[in-house]
């Protein structure tokens, strides 16, 4: 699992619509807002960093959202997987020797 603490900035006057959009992402929890209402403090929980990347990309392109900036990232379980037998199940799995032999240079 990956957890982030992030700030999502809205276009002025579009925070209500942007919040509706955020509700469509079960991975996102909105905790609080800046005084002007133009920034939301959120946490995002995803299975891996690829899923986080997808959410980030979608939000960046969404109407009403100006920017998303991550400040904090917890990746303890990813580290554990990389250092244990589960390594091949991570996104870096294809870099491991056994996978390379099987898959060439594919990630």
């Amino acid at each position: 699992m990956i957890f982030t603490g992030s700030i999502i900035s809205f276009e002025a006057g579009q925070s209500a619509e942007a919040l509706k959009l955020l509700e469509k992402f079960p991975e996102i929890e909105v905790h609080t807002f800046s005084e002007d209402g133009n920034n939301a403090v959120v946490s995002i929980e995803t299975n891996d960093s690829k899923a986080l990347e997808n959410i980030t990309d979608k939000l960046k392109k969404a109407d009403g959202i100006k920017d998303i900036a991550h400040h904090y990232m917890y990746f303890g379980e990813e580290t554990e997987k990389l250092l244990t037998e589960d390594a091949a199940s991570t996104e870096l799995g294809a870099f491991f020797k056994s996978a390379r032999i099987k898959n060439g240079k594919a990630l």
């Binding site: 603490g5 700030i7 609080t32 946490s43 904090y72």
Partner: peptide, 23 residues
């Protein structure tokens, strides 16, 4: 534990952005 990590992450982001965080 999961909620705790999320809360910590959000509080940390709020502090960085200068946003008061009730939790």
């Amino acid at each position: 534990r999961r909620d705790f990590i999320k809360l910590t992450a959000a509080a940390s982001a709020a502090a960085a952005a200068g946003i008061s965080f009730p939790e």
